[in-house]
Write a protein that binds this DNA or RNA. Sequence first.
DNA 1: CATTATCCGGAACATCCGTTTCGGATAATG
DNA 2: CATTATCCGAAACGGATGTTCCGGATAATG
Lengths: 182, 182
Amino acid sequence: MTRRRREDSVRNEAQVLTAARETLDERGLGADVREIARRAGVGVATVYRHFPTKDDLVQAAMRTDLDGWTEVTAQAVEEADAWTGLRTIVEHTVATMARHRAILDGMTSRAEAFAACHAHLAEALSGVVARAHEQGTLRRDVSAGDVGLQILALSGVAQLAPDEQTLHRHVGLTLDGLRART
Amino acid sequence: MTRRRREDSVRNEAQVLTAARETLDERGLGADVREIARRAGVGVATVYRHFPTKDDLVQAAMRTDLDGWTEVTAQAVEEADAWTGLRTIVEHTVATMARHRAILDGMTSRAEAFAACHAHLAEALSGVVARAHEQGTLRRDVSAGDVGLQILALSGVAQLAPDEQTLHRHVGLTLDGLRART
DNA sequence: CATTATCCGGAACATCCGTTTCGGATAATG
DNA sequence: CATTATCCGAAACGGATGTTCCGGATAATG
């Protein structure tokens, strides 16, 4: 006879996830597990009971945001105007990275746990870029890989320029640079 | 009577500096002092005898390259055509950061040891950008701070895109985006 | 309320890294 | 060659961080 799961257990798991999200957003992948535990009002062992490894915790904490990002980008590929889709992908990806520093860290450090994200981004960009080339709205000499690099570069800016406005202006600047000259 | 300095001492100091340059270029500021010592064929204590702290070692190892960079950028400010000067600053700074990962790390992590570099870059950019605005070659809505951010962003690209050619193309892309539309 | 499976937190362990210590080796001097 | 100031490397220290242990607490069950 299997007992019902203890209520403090589920409560703690939720609190750990929340604390992990907060801490990872602030400190990035380098966040200390002890600090996450402290913010959750819990001991370290409790964290490790629910998530066998720090990587597992990170993935669980970022899952929702990552899924949202995946959906938005996948949808942007379907956009009739490929340039609009490209702009959406760039803006939304940069915004996500700016808000969640751990995701940026994972992408730039090529952590194995983020390989799927890399693949998804590459695929989405490859589609949109090809169609933007057909529609003549993207510079011919700009590849999907180039756009990917620019996205990561902009995300790097996000960590140096705290204010939303500056970041958005830089995204506009970059997009201007990518657009085919009329 | 003060004795002459022992020969193994000066030899070791030089070897440590060389090893430090190699290791810092490869691994960035996170380079392990033990690895530097090993490459120099020396014990850790020898490293610390010549350079009281890791920061001191880093500064000594990077001094030559930083001085070169300072000179080139200072000279670029004097350029008659401000746009050319700006391009030189951007290209040379990005190239320096790409080659010496530790310098990039120092600049982006706002380490106190690199405050002088920050100040120098800010001053140089401020001058060139003002004159480029007067000459109408730089977009009006782009500030010196913006250019500084773009430089750091491009340097970030340098760490993700190993090949020289891709990096140079991205620099060109960015410069295109900064130039006033004719 | 008694039982007990489940869960909890703090301490301990392992590793990494900057830095210091110290007994022994060695080069400069006379 | 003897002396000794100087230098050397291995080991140890100290702090940070991921992870595990374990004795005690507690919630689910009947």
